[in-house]
Design a protein around this nucleic acid. Structure first.
Lengths: 193, 193
DNA sequence: CCATAAACCGACTGGTCAGTCAATACCCAC
DNA sequence: GTGGGTATTGACTGACCAGTCGGTTTATGG
């Protein structure tokens, strides 16, 4: 119950080990035996907390999703001008991905994996709900191009992922505010009216 | 040797079965036994042509890469104005992905897989060489923003992938020239000076 | 101090799969 | 036709791994 002492919480240890190993070797090349060894627990303990390996993966996904959601909309204010609001969300998203690169990479791997079920995929869409609302508002205010909002979402996701990928490959740019501003400028130019 | 009768070419049959099954179930959830059964050959035959499963995957990757390369630069002419040239390559890329969605999806899965080696990843980069040259030229002519060309490449790849993903999810848009033009317009707006 | 339940352990099992191999079919040159 | 190489077969093996289970420790409350 107490979140302030997670280092002895075995479930937490399992999550961390799994995240590290999944990113290093992929789901199928990471035996549960290795996860439990790395977490310092017995195999049985892992299966005490998670019924199957797949359930562990899905639980980890939800955990990552929550971690992201918590940050993405932070400090967003509807009253603020549209472009500035979008800029805020953009910065939040990229900051989260860089500060939680493990979670981010796992996210990517999971999304592209064939073991993701329709239900989980759908839930994944929901997380973009708030962002879709923002875009709708932009279209209504005639600030951005009249395009299907869900295509906009595809496009923006792609641009954010590209930028994140670039920043993870070029860490020296991560603290470069000018670069972030320029990259957002490019995103803005592509969608603005 | 004769490519006109590939239906009896077992290697070809194996490639096709593997592509289909990898896309449906992923690499690790596709046993070689299933590939060979689907291809109508014995397990031994598969291993006669490919030393290991991993070699099969890599060979398939190279095959897809070649298929793409063959089309992407088709009809490209340095003499043509910059924007038009880029538009051509853009259209080629998306057309290839749509007409070869199996290859395209495999490509994605392979790129995000942890089993891709550094050597193969490097070779993958090379394939964008010609595109990098085009972008360099655009920067030199002051037609597009002064950004690191390799960031441009990340960004454009992301936008192309987004658009392709959208088109695969919304087939009714695939023959919509207006949509293609608009999506290129957005790409162009994001990079133009 | 005891009782009870939950957490935890790790040897073990049943099944799966990449890759082998010995045997057979096919092909072509001489 | 005969010798030698290549293609093809599929039963088989050895390794590996998800998940089980019987038993032990720890935490809690009476």
């Amino acid at each position: 119950m107490d979140q302030s002492e997670p280092s002895t919480d075995k479930k937490e240890l399992i999550f961390r080990a799994a995240l590290r190993l999944f990113n290093a070797n992929g789901f199928d090349r990471t035996p549960t035996s290795q996860i439990s060894r790395e977490a310092g627990v017995a195999t049985g303990t892992l299966f005490h907390y998670f019924e199957t390996k797949e359930e562990l993966i899905n639980a980890l996904y939800l955990r990552c999703k929550d971690s992201m959601l918590r940050e993405v909309m932070a400090g967003f204010d509807k009253a603020v001008p549209f472009r500035a609001g979008l800029r805020r969300v953009y910065g939040n998203l990229i900051a989260w991905a860089i500060n939680n690169s493990g979670e981010y990479l796992f996210f990517q791997q999971f999304s592209n994996s064939t073991l993701i079920g329709d239900k989980t995929r759908e839930t994944g869409r929901e997380k973009f709900g708030p962002l879709l609302d923002i875009l709708d508002e932009g279209v209504r205010q005639d600030l951005i191009k009249t395009v299907q909002p869900d295509y906009l979402l595809y496009l923006i996701s792609g641009m954010v992922m590209s930028t994140t990928g670039y920043l993870l490959d070029h860490p020296e740019k991560q603290r470069d505010e000018g670069f972030l501003e320029q990259s957002f400028g490019m995103l803005w130019d592509s969608i603005r009216q």
